[in-house]
Amino acid sequence: MRPDRGHRQLAVLLAPYLVGLIVLVLAPFAVTLALAFTEYDLIRPPRWTGTANLTALTADPIFRTALVNSLVFGAVAVPLRLLAALGLALLLHRRAPGTSTARTASVLPTAVPEIAYGLLWLWLLNPLYGPISQVLRLGGTNGLTVFGRTPPQWLTDPADARAAIVLMSLFTIGEMFVILLAARRALPPDVYELAALEDATAWDVLRRITLPLIAPVLGLLLIRDAIGSLQFSFVPALVVTDGGPPPYATTYIPLFAYRNAFEYLRYGYAAAATLVMLLLTVAAVALQWRLLRRYGRFHSQ
């Protein structure tokens, strides 16, 4: 076989993916990039405005709120999600009665369509008949908790609503769980037997063996989830809290961009917000990459 036939075959096989990448990802990205410097409302043709959108964003208090909300959400939700997935993976990596059911249960919420998941939580969080509030009111009187306090007002109090969005995100960790489960199961068993012979405590084993050995996987998941966190706040905020309660307590950047584009028809402005989100993502990845590289140099051979 001549070498160029191999190349041609490779090109043919890659073509569908490359077409998809260009049409569905790169082209919209280029359009967004261009729109960010224009004013466009779908009716009149786009008008070049230079950096006016970006300057307007910096002065926009709603955008500033959305930015802070997104950053806080990422900073709180990502470590908690990673911790939850790691905890479940370490708990369920052994073969024992009930573990396969528990593993399935851990992955299942991730498989639920996002909108349905949001609607389900709308019911779970309902202050009157929602199961979560009912459980919290158990043993209390007059609709208060057993400690005599008001249960969290998930949908009406700004801080509680933000917590609700984080809470919702803690159950869609199926992918991370599966990856960590596989990573833990791939670790050599004899190393753990040696630790048992040395009478290492569970804490020592976790700290000195398990965590260092799966650190590369954890690092990868951290980067991936940080990228994702800017996006997966969108559906809960849209469906469950509707960006509220006032003042814009759960308006994150994706929702901000969505509202501006599809409700206020300010496409240029929305594109500029998206651009900021993209830059944030790149910055977050670069920062974590540097940290991981430094750790990696010191950790692996």
Partner: peptide, 21 residues
């Protein structure tokens, strides 16, 4: 007694060295 309380040392066939240490 559990392994850690027997005061034995073992050299595994694979050596079971901690790769990160």
């Amino acid at each position: 007694l559990r392994p850690g309380r027997r005061n034995v040392s073992m050299v595994f066939q694979s050596y079971a060295l901690f790769p990160h240490l």
